[in-house]
Amino acid sequence: MHSFTYTANPGRILFGFGKLEALGEEIRAAGMTRVLLLSTPQQVDQVQALSDTLGDLSAGVFSDARMHTPAEVTEQALKYLKSVGADGIVSLGGGSTIGLGKALALRTNLGQIVIPTTYAGSEMTPILGETADGVKRTLRSEKVLPETVIYDVDLTMTLPAAMSGLSGMNAVAHAIEALYCREANPVTSLIAAEGVRALTEALPRIAKDPADRAARSDALYGAWLCGTCLGTVGMALHHKLCHALGGAFDLPHAATHTIVLPHALAYTAPAIPEVMARLRETLNTDDPARRLYEIGCEIGAPEGLKALEMPEEGIARVVDLSLENPYWNPRPLDREGLTLLLEDAFHGRPPSQH
């Protein structure tokens, strides 16, 4: 056994059906008296209803969370938070809402309770990605790690099948990179493999039957595990490419991750034979990168970055951004290989090794 370092992040987890009923109790247990509830515009009715049930525990609702956590939106939310005198943050939603909650926690040191309604997994990480002037930058800080996460499977039952698949594959990307990132360790690898297994088995079932309660529970369980991986180790090429794409072209976060993941894995595969052997077992396939691509097809993912309206000439810009400030990767980054990778991802072709 090689030497390693494993750091477990603190946090309280509630998992199961009907767990949202415990929110008021969790707010009081955390020492909060007036919480600001956050959501996207699409979930404002849901979060407003939750605010109504909390009564005096709710200081108000800010429902303008956006993808990639734009700095200007954070400033608007911060101003509102101060105006209502909130002493805690409750985020209901997916990565956009959770990102805003983290950005506020970074600036205020207030505690957070997160209620995920997708499978993105960012609720388990001390990582925040913020966008300003067309560039998305990430930071790692214990100040942005939520103190409590409530996983209520009931809240995911109405998540559209297409969105379920994309957010789930976003979570899978966290675990895939956790297997080969610089900080990889045996404990995280066990969690990662189980998270990949749970999600990749559940997502095609949800695509066929969105009301499958067992599949929904398995997917949320997998998302928790995959998020835990991202919260305890670092990132590599896949996340660098997705951050560059999202910041430069405002592409939808989960769809971008779903499209890029098979290609980033195929690029790195020659340098990680042991990881590929593990993924062959986990995914029950001879070609893990191709299987991830096939799952994308099964869940109805967009056919390439061009389907997200990314301009083809933007490929060169993303390559430049990736090389200017590269993340560590087992296979070193080279311009030609990254260009071919992104061309495959752009056109929606199956992954190939370059």
Score class of each variant (00 low, 15 high):
1 M>G: 15
1 M>F: 12
8 A>G: 00
13 I>M: 08
13 I>V: 14
23 L>P: 09
24 G>W: 11
25 E>P: 01
29 A>I: 06
31 G>F: 10
34 R>P: 05
35 V>I: 12
40 T>K: 05
41 P>N: 08
41 P>K: 11
42 Q>L: 14
45 D>N: 14
51 S>Q: 09
52 D>F: 06
53 T>F: 05
53 T>G: 02
55 G>W: 10
58 S>I: 10
61 V>D: 06
63 S>A: 15
66 R>L: 13
66 R>H: 07
69 T>V: 15
72 E>T: 10
82 K>T: 08
90 V>I: 06
91 S>K: 02
91 S>E: 04
93 G>K: 09
97 T>Q: 00
98 I>W: 00
98 I>M: 13
102 K>L: 01
108 T>I: 07
111 G>S: 12
111 G>L: 12
111 G>H: 10
112 Q>H: 03
113 I>C: 02
115 I>K: 03
120 A>G: 09
130 E>Y: 13
135 V>E: 13
137 R>S: 12
137 R>Q: 12
137 R>P: 06
147 E>G: 14
147 E>W: 03
149 V>L: 02
153 V>P: 03
153 V>Q: 01
155 L>M: 14
159 L>G: 05
161 A>K: 14
161 A>P: 00
163 M>A: 13
163 M>C: 02
164 S>M: 10
164 S>R: 02
168 G>K: 07
169 M>L: 15
170 N>E: 07
170 N>A: 12
170 N>D: 15
171 A>W: 11
172 V>K: 02
173 A>D: 00
174 H>N: 03
175 A>S: 15
180 Y>F: 15
180 Y>T: 04
182 R>Y: 14
183 E>Q: 15
186 P>V: 11
187 V>A: 10
187 V>G: 02
188 T>D: 07
190 L>T: 09
190 L>G: 13
193 A>G: 00
193 A>I: 13
195 G>Y: 05
198 A>P: 03
198 A>S: 14
201 E>T: 14
201 E>W: 04
204 P>G: 03
204 P>M: 05
209 D>K: 11
211 A>F: 06
212 D>F: 06
221 Y>S: 02
224 W>R: 13
226 C>G: 07
229 C>Y: 04
229 C>S: 05
231 G>Y: 10
231 G>P: 10
233 V>D: 08
233 V>G: 10
235 M>Q: 11
237 L>H: 04
241 L>M: 05
243 H>V: 02
244 A>P: 00
245 L>S: 01
246 G>R: 05
253 H>L: 08
254 A>N: 09
256 T>C: 08
261 L>Y: 10
266 A>G: 04
266 A>I: 11
267 Y>C: 03
269 A>V: 07
270 P>Y: 09
270 P>M: 09
271 A>D: 07
273 P>N: 11
275 V>Q: 11
277 A>M: 04
278 R>Q: 12
280 R>L: 02
289 A>P: 05
290 R>A: 05
295 I>S: 02
298 E>A: 15
299 I>V: 15
299 I>M: 07
302 P>L: 10
306 K>W: 01
310 M>E: 07
313 E>K: 09
314 G>I: 04
315 I>D: 00
318 V>H: 01
320 D>R: 13
322 S>T: 15
322 S>F: 00
323 L>P: 02
327 Y>K: 05
328 W>C: 04
335 R>Q: 00
337 G>M: 03
339 T>C: 00
343 E>K: 13
349 R>S: 08
349 R>L: 13
350 P>G: 02
350 P>Y: 08
351 P>Q: 08
